[in-house]
Design a protein around this nucleic acid. Structure first.
Length: 662
DNA sequence: AGTGCTAGCCTTTTT
DNA sequence: GGCTAGCACT
């Protein structure tokens, strides 16, 4: 156990402001910290951990829950810096990550073994698709019926809000009322299918966690005894599952929930800021702390942000007003460009200007947008001008086809019940489709049962080979050999995950990509870097879990290059970050707020999202509006975003690019 | 029956 | 620019 005594050296009163100090040193027991944007929320949580340690609380007593991996890493990193206690001494991470660890410990009581695999959204969708096909071949052919993706989102929403599927359909999707029964049936079968395959989707990680806490008394007792201090970040974005999990573990009420209802941007995923509003009811004696002094932004930016919130209808959330700490500076700009190309030109030009004439670094600048596709023109323009940028794009490192193909082989070698994984890589062979793959796997399981051998050991028998379409027969033995090597050879290595991935990269797939991809060299590099990633883990299960749960990570390769880069990201991904200069692009009505949200009546969430966007800016805020968009389908002419029009024009300065040449 | 190809559809946000 | 329905091919 490291020395905890050094926390005694921290003079909490002098490094925190009065509001923060109150919260940090709040007595044990329920506390709700309402921290506005830029008010030092992370700082408060970090110092709270340090303060708890100074009060004799052990790191292992603390459970720290966050929404993103980034937030978890950052927070524990800062704690380590502050107190010298290494991050690994805490149970800290995303809900999904902690849930995964918990289920590996106690999953047997709900029928989940230690070595279950986690499937990502794509795999989950194809599994559900299969279930639908198997149950009713005609269902997806019917035009009026929801597609697999929609069925998935309905079911997922129901699960995250702890409501029956039928109720969600009547409530939010009444136009699917006729097939409500069928959808419920699909949901049930999908659940059974996953259990059979010993795989869990993202929602399962929360659902099983709660189920265990509710049904397994020992596990529940362990959890609440073990974690005597619970800290939750971004509490406004918790959904019903998450808030119930917290309440279940925190029967002792020593919970500190930190959040800002004005920044709730995940209701589409089931987040409910009622959780924050009713926290005091569920935890009697809750102390409420408000932290409103903003250290991040100029008064002009804050004035703008506050006016954005003013436009919310009455009765939504707690009233709040960010109070400026910093000195006056320039106004936010509202730039009207002709089209998305001119918008991109403006941003690129201005970035050049900020770097060359104002001494900013590229890394001080971020461009935010509502949806990934809006960044396309900008990428072209930035490349043209050789402005270095890093994009947290729609296609993430671990989501690339070649990464997933490879991982599927490792997954299957670890858990031969995982037919989703099996399908993924076998379908790479010519003429091999999902149906054929499934048949082969069924036969293999059959043979393995009869011969009392493992599935991997029967895969290269003649009976199986006969089922493989002719064009793929030559490759088959090499593929099977690789799978067996992963399972057996890697198991005898001291660093099993690393060895397994290495074998997979050097085996059948290494040859396959040469023929499959033009740019196989680059993809090979990606795969090599995956070996390095695997080397960080001791257990296969943990490595495979992290591959799925870290899916928003960028590759090691691109992190190296990201030293001094402009950041291009969606507003969602920018939450919690700050930049001296921020560009918000695509501020046309229909793009932000996005058309669909307007049609579905979710404008308030879009407004909160816009609020999150503008409060990322420290010194300079540029909001850009393309009058004409050619991005999606036909050319459309649009009005400036209602979020801009609703704010008094005195809060910003308008520049029309078609009048003043830049 | 199952896989592969192409023309015409629509484009959100994340663990 | 990605995805699916529909059709052709084995």
């Amino acid at each position: 156990m490291p020395e905890v005594g050094d926390t005694g050296l921290i003079d909490f009163a002098s490094v925190l402001n009065a509001e923060q100090y109150e919260a940090v040193t709040a007595p044990f027991g329920p506390a709700l910290v309402l921290a506005g944007a830029g008010s030092g929320k992370t700082r408060t949580l970090t110092y709270r951990v340090a303060w708890l340690l100074s009060q004799g609380v052990k790191p292992s007593d603390i459970l720290l829950l966050t929404f993103t991996n980034k937030a978890a890493r950052e927070m524990l990193g800062r704690v380590e810096e502050l107190t010298g206690v290494p991050a690994r001494y805490f149970w800290g991470g995303t809900f999904h990550h902690i849930g995964q660890r918990f289920i590996r410990l106690f999953g047997t009581s709900v029928g989940i073994g230690k070595n279950f695999n986690i499937i990502d959204a794509d795999d989950a969708e194809s599994l559900l698709g299969q279930v639908i096909q198997d149950t009713d071949r005609e269902f997806l052919k019917h035009k009026d019926n929801p597609k697999t993706r929609v069925v998935m989102s309905i079911v997922s929403y129901a699960r995250n809000t702890c409501r029956p599927v039928g109720e969600v359909i009547s409530d939010k999707y009444d136009y699917f009322e006729e097939v409500s029964g069928q959808i419920q049936q699909f949901a049930k079968l999908y659940q059974a299918k996953k259990l059979e395959q010993q795989v869990a989707d993202y929602d399962d990680l929360l659902e099983y966690w709660l189920k265990i806490l509710e049904s397994d008394e020992q596990a529940a007792y362990y959890a609440s005894q073990r974690f005597t201090q619970i800290l939750v970040d971004e509490y406004q974005d918790t959904n019903m599952l998450q808030s119930r999990i917290i309440d279940r573990i925190g029967t002792h009420h020593r919970i500190m929930a930190v959040g800002d209802d004005a920044q709730c941007i995940y209701t589409w995923r089931g987040a409910d800021f009622d959780n924050i509003m009713t926290f005091p009811d569920r935890h009697p004696g809750t102390r409420i702390f408000k932290i409103e002094t903003n250290y991040r932004s100029t008064p002009e930016i804050l004035r703008f942000a506050n006016r954005v919130l003013d436009c919310q209808p009455d009765g939504i959330g707690f009233r709040k007003e960010l109070k400026a700490f910093r000195a006056a500076n320039i106004h936010p700009y509202f730039i009207q460009a002709i089209d998305t190309r001119q918008q991109a030109q403006f941003v690129a030009q201005r970035i050049d200007y900020l770097v060359e004439n104002r001494g900013m670094n590229y890394r001080d600048i971020a461009v935010l947008y509502r949806a990934h596709y809006q960044a396309m023109d900008l990428q072209v323009e930035l490349s043209k001008r050789r402005v270095p940028y890093q994009i947290t794009s729609g296609v993430r490192f671990f989501e690339q086809a070649h990464i997933r193909d490879l991982v599927a082989q490792v997954r299957f070698a670890v858990n031969p019940e995982d037919s989703t994984a099996f399908q993924r890589f076998t379908c790479l062979l010519p003429k091999m489709g999902p149906k054929t793959a499934l048949k082969i796997l069924e036969l293999a399981k059959d043979l393995s049962h009869k011969q009392k051998k493992s599935v991997l050991d029967v895969l290269n028998q003649d009976a199986i080979l006969k089922k493989v379409p002719e064009l793929g027969r030559e490759e088959w033995p090499s593929l099977v050999q690789t799978l067996r090597d992963i399972a057996s050879n890697a198991a005898s290595e001291p660093k099993q995950p690393e060895a397994a991935v290495k074998i997979a990269v050097e085996g059948w797939y290494g040859d396959y990509i040469r023929e499959a991809y033009e740019n196989w060299m680059q993809r090979k590099d990606d795969l090599e870097s995956l070996i390095g990633f695997a080397a960080r883990f001791d257990s296969m299960a943990e490595m495979l879990a992290q591959l799925v749960l870290l899916n928003s990570e960028t590759s090691d390769r691109s992190i190296e290059r990201s030293e001094d880069c402009v950041r291009l990201t969606t507003v969602h991904q920018a939450k919690g970050l700050e930049f001296p200069a921020v560009f918000v692009i695509g501020l046309a009505d229909g793009q932000f707020p996005i058309k669909r949200a307007v049609e579905e009546g979710n404008v308030e969430e879009e407004r909160r999202l816009f609020y999150v966007a503008v409060t990322r800016a420290m010194d300079e805020l540029y909001m850009v509006f393309p009058i004409i968009s050619v991005q999606a389908g036909p050319m459309t002419r649009s009005e400036p975003s209602r979020f801009i029009r609703e704010v008094p024009p005195t809060c910003f300065e308008t520049v029309a690019m078609h009048q003043h040449r830049y």
